[in-house]
């Protein structure tokens, strides 16, 4: 089973990376950009999708400072795309 874990800074915690990107985009002429946040993406093949929450809690995310979201990619194998 292919899974994707999206990890974001928790709401309310200063996200300087997001702020830097938010300032950079208008400088390139992209207007109307707001609320930019930069997080992390982990993709993995797992035998037991039931273990994903434990993986996030213990290693992939730090729940004190980050939120995570698990997406199961049905019908996909772990073969990397060409």
């Amino acid at each position: 089973m292919r899974a994707r874990v999206l990890i974001r800074p928790k709401a309310g915690i200063l996200d300087p990376q997001g702020q830097a990107v938010e300032r950079a985009l208008p400088a390139l002429g992209f207007d109307g950009v707001e609320h930019v946040h930069v997080g992390r993406l982990v993709e993995l093949d797992v035998g037991d999708a039931g273990q994903l929450d434990g993986m996030c809690q213990r290693l992939l995310a730090n729940p004190l400072i980050e939120e995570y979201e698990v997406q199961l990619l049905d019908g996909q194998t772990g073969t990397p795309s060409p």
Binding site: I13, L14, P16, Q17, A20, N62, L64, I65
Partner: peptide, 10 residues
């Protein structure tokens, strides 16, 4: 308790 995050100034 707590955590260490990237410096505010990056």
């Amino acid at each position: 308790p707590g955590a260490l995050l990237p410096n505010a100034g990056l």
